[in-house]
Amino acid sequence: MSDTEHPTEHTPAIHDIGGIQRFHCTPVEYDEEPPDAFGKRVDALRQLLARKGYMTVDELRRGIESIPEPEYFALTYYERWLRSIELLMVEKGVVTKEELT
């Protein structure tokens, strides 16, 4: 089905997925698993860095939105967060790229 009802020729940004055709017929998988240890640790790190003034949640989102499309869809949720936190900490000079590789 084409997206003919949309009145414009614009392509939304990668994260701006409300109503887009790509996921139109994809069932929503009901999954009760809580975040794993990795996810909880990334989550805690993000909150701690925000509380200490090293980053805002808005910056986290901007970092996630800048992940190139193939990786964006291949990474898990908290892997995208980690990618963004790393980007921000390097950008702000808190850590260096070398320390992360």
Binding site: T8, H10, P12, G18, R61, R62, E65
Partner: peptide, 17 residues
């Protein structure tokens, strides 16, 4: 559509424009 003009972060979903 500021996303077409360069890096940005906006909270207005595409479907409302």
């Amino acid at each position: 559509w500021p996303e077409e003009r360069g890096p940005c972060h906006i909270r207005t979903p595409h479907y409302l424009r």
